[in-house]
């Protein structure tokens, strides 16, 4: 059955449904209970599942993540909420040294089945400490899975799937997508975990991206189509596991590739993907893989500077048109 739903409501429904199905799931974080989440994702869940399962915490990000680690090792399936991904630096020991390494350090004795839900990205004039795209920090840490939904359907399904995984999943929402609405069919079979989605098919250029930039890439592709350029747009959905097979298949077919990421360019997700495409698809490439990524600068509060420092549909279309010239 088709329903119209926002990204935020899909996330909320995923948590609600998962908590109904699995009594070991608890949500731990700042303002997740009575307040309903800074972006409203957990609104009223406390009324359904109770304060024992929607656990409001003090402002103690390291201990929130550490608590989730300990809970996950002893029988619960915690969802720790980090209000902004910018607070990741506060929690990095518990995430990168503890959660990510416990299964390995302990020789496979136990895993840490927790989900760290957070949100990132620009779009709300939130400034340098509330607007970053730090997925590269997570992707750079073996042991952590990383999901970054763009569509409303993925917001629901990737979160449900994350809540069945045996290893820690960092789940990064995009703050500019919460109010985005989509017609979705929740009864339809979801795409498998770890599989990229080809959102648009074209023979001239492959645009590899994820999260909000998927929509910018699709908008750019529409503009390019009006000029007779047909782009393939790949939404990676999860960065770990990374579905490089789908990327390879399309890059080899088309011969031109661009990687788009909101994160800063240097040592970023786009850098990793571009390097990998160059290594593995070299013989099929007609020109260098281009990275379209965030500028190597902090994010400003000024809307003009903020939007100017990350890729836009116009920038993607412009770069693509020049690649095709």
């Amino acid at each position: 059955m088709m329903t119209s739903m926002t990204y935020r409501d899909a996330l909320r429904k995923a948590l609600d449904d998962a908590m109904t199905d699995d009594s070991s799931i608890v949500v731990i974080g700042e303002e997740v209970g009575r307040y309903g989440g800074a972006y409203g994702v957990t609104k009223d869940l406390i009324k359904i599942h109770g304060a024992d399962r929607l656990i409001d915490t003090p402002i103690s990000e390291p201990a929130i993540v550490g608590t989730a680690v300990g809970a996950a090792m002893t029988g619960l399936r915690p969802v720790a909420e980090l209000m902004y991904i910018d607070f990741l630096g506060m929690t990095m020991d518990q995430l990168a040294n503890q959660a990510a390494k416990i299964r390995y350090m302990f020789g496979g004795q136990i895993g840490v089945p927790m989900v760290l839900r957070t949100q990132g990205g620009t779009g709300r004039s939130a400034g340098a400490q509330h607007s970053q795209s730090l997925e590269a920090w997570v992707m750079h840490t073996p042991g952590l899975r990383l999901a970054m939904p763009a569509t409303v359907a993925d917001a629901y399904h990737l979160l449900r799937q994350s809540l069945t995984k045996p290893d820690p999943v960092v789940f990064i929402e995009h703050k500019a997508l919460y109010t985005r609405k989509e017609e979705i069919d929740l009864d339809a079979d979801p795409l498998p975990w770890g599989k990229a989605a080809v959102r648009r098919q074209g023979d001239d250029l492959v645009i590899v991206t994820y999260s909000r930039q998927v929509f910018y890439a699709l908008e750019a592709a529409d503009a390019l189509a009006r000029k007779g350029i047909e782009a393939t747009v790949i939404d990676l959905r999860t960065l770990n596991p990374l579905d490089f097979d789908t990327v390879r298949e399309h890059v080899e077919r088309v011969g031109k590739a661009m990687v788009v990421s909101e994160g800063v360019m240097t040592s970023g997700v786009a850098a990793e993907l571009a390097a990998r495409i160059s290594e593995e698809c070299f013989d099929f490439l007609e020109q260098p893989v281009l990275r379209v990524a965030g500028e190597d600068i902090p994010i400003s509060v000024s809307q003009e500077l903020e939007s100017g420092s990350v890729p836009s549909a116009r920038m993607i279309a412009d770069v693509a048109a020049r690649m095709m010239a």
């Binding site: 608590t67 680690v69 300990g70 996950a72 002893t74 020991d93 503890q98």
Partner: peptide, 21 residues
Amino acid sequence: IVGGGIPAVIGAGLSSRHLKQ
């Protein structure tokens, strides 16, 4: 990590109560 293992007992304490251990 000095202090790194401390918050895990908070999680274990939550599990203990939630799962009646």
